[in-house]
Amino acid sequence: SYYEILDVPRSASADDIKKAYRRKALQWHPDKNPDNKEFAEKKFKEVAEAYEVLSDKHKREIYDR
């Protein structure tokens, strides 16, 4: 789930989600993982997609249904 990707509970606040996104984006940024760039790019995209949905109140409500 998007919550698992960002490592936050379903009850996470918008601020918690933003902090988790920043932490995970740094962790999986391809430039930070030169030895495993392809895998890092995949993870980085997953993190971005999760944040896009969970950071938008309307999209998150739909996702949580």
Rank of each mutant, 00 (worst) to 15 (best):
D7V: 03
D7E: 14
A20K: 02
N36W: 08
S13H: 06
Y63R: 02
K42V: 11
R23G: 06
Y63E: 02
E61L: 11
L26E: 14
A48D: 07
H29T: 11
A14M: 15
D35Y: 09
D16A: 09
K37T: 11
E38I: 12
K43V: 08
K18N: 14
D35V: 09
K24A: 10
E41Q: 13
A20H: 03
H29W: 07
K18V: 13
K24D: 01
K59D: 04
A50M: 01
Y3G: 00
Y21L: 04
E41Y: 10
K43D: 02
Y51A: 03
A20P: 00
D15I: 10
A50I: 03
F39M: 11
I5K: 04
N36I: 11
D15R: 10
P34G: 09
R23D: 15
I17L: 07
K32D: 07
R22K: 15
A40D: 03
V8Y: 00
D64A: 02
N33R: 04
E61K: 08
P34V: 11
E38W: 10
P34C: 09
Y51L: 03
D16E: 14
K32V: 12
R23A: 14
P34Y: 08
D15W: 09
H58R: 14
E46V: 04
E46F: 05
E41T: 12
E38S: 12
D56V: 05
F44W: 14
K45V: 07
K19P: 01
R23Y: 09
E38K: 11
P9C: 12
R60W: 02
D35E: 13
R60I: 02
L26T: 09
W28V: 03
A25I: 14
W28T: 03
K37R: 15
E41N: 09
K57T: 14
K19V: 12
K19G: 07
A40M: 06
H29D: 14
R23M: 13
L54K: 00
I62A: 14
E61G: 07
W28E: 02
A50H: 00
N33D: 05
P34W: 13
K37N: 06
D35K: 09
K45R: 14
I5A: 06
Y3W: 03
N33E: 04
E46Y: 05
E38V: 11
R22L: 15
D16M: 12
D16R: 07
R10S: 10
K24Q: 07
P30Q: 06
A20I: 01
W28Y: 12
V8L: 12
S1C: 14
E49D: 10
I17N: 00
D64R: 01
D56L: 03
S11I: 07
K42W: 10
K18W: 13
I5P: 00
N33I: 04
S11D: 15
K24W: 07
E46G: 04
R65G: 10
F39D: 08
D64P: 02
D15F: 08
S11E: 13
D35T: 13
K59C: 09
K42T: 10
Y51H: 04
N36P: 03
D16P: 01
Y21D: 00
V53S: 03
V47I: 15
D16F: 07
K43F: 07
S55I: 10
E52G: 11
A12E: 01
P34F: 09
K45D: 06
L54A: 00
K18R: 13
R23I: 14
R60C: 03
K37F: 08
S13I: 04
R65Q: 13
E49G: 05
E38Q: 12
